[in-house]
Design a protein around this nucleic acid. Structure first.
Lengths: 120, 120
DNA sequence: CGCTTGACCTAAAGCAGCTTCAGGTCGGTA
DNA sequence: TACCGACCTGAAGCTGCTTTAGGTCAAGCG
């Protein structure tokens, strides 16, 4: 698989994938004889997971740690699980905050509507 | 009201409030004779709204436009309403994406659990 | 009275997480 | 053969803050 396909698949940009590799989030991507990156299905899945983690606000430093665990094999699965569990907590908090902000916006919109009604 | 109190109230940091003023998101904050910022209740409410907009991902450029409208008085309320309506759409999309990511994380966690069970 | 402490101030540098740009190498096609 | 498009690299640029360095001033303490 080539980089443009992985970008398409994961929603990450081609630049971001290269940037992630340089940052050590996927240092194991192979190259063809032509020097171009060749992604296995597993690589693509991994990048997809990274995309979800980033989209939900995991800092790169933590993703880096997570990637190091991933690269060390199945023995690190309990640690990875713990990381994801902690992250899920933060995600829930984030979702709650967005919901709170949504009601604030909705209330503000209602106020606008009242003012507009009063003025006609 | 002083800046530390507004920070407490809105959840923004003192630095962020100063930064927002410099960026034109609240250029109308008064100063006391001592040169310190003095915030009215209205100012604090405005910053609270800004905080919600930022927390939900509105870019500063758009907040800037929104702030300019706010500073121009009630006549701009229809435009402000339109801005918030559009933003609410994006917020809904964002919430949907977080939800999607949450199920991905949950599935990954389940896989980890299966692997750990198999290995015992 | 002088001295420190703490809240405020500014301007500028630093940081995270990308994106964009400049410049170069290929393989395929008109 | 000459160009196009996809890939490559390294470096600079961008956004949205945070941190740092350096300064003012009022309050409180020995």
């Amino acid at each position: 698989m080539k980089i443009s396909e992985v970008a398409e698949l994961t929603g990450l940009s081609v630049s971001t994938i290269r940037f992630y590799e340089k940052s050590g989030l996927c240092p194991f991507i192979q190259r063809g004889a032509d020097g171009k990156r060749r992604f296995s299905k597993t690589d693509a899945d991994w990048l997809g997971l990274l995309a979800s983690l980033r989209a939900t606000g995991m800092p790169m430093s933590e993703m880096r740690t997570f990637a190091d665990l991933y690269a060390s094999g199945d023995a690190t699965i309990p640690k990875r699980r713990a990381t994801l569990l902690a992250h899920r907590q933060r995600l829930a908090a984030r979702q709650a905050e967005l919901e709170r902000c949504r009601t604030i916006l909705d209330r503000k919109l209602q106020k606008y509507e009242e003012i507009m009604k009063d003025q006609t």
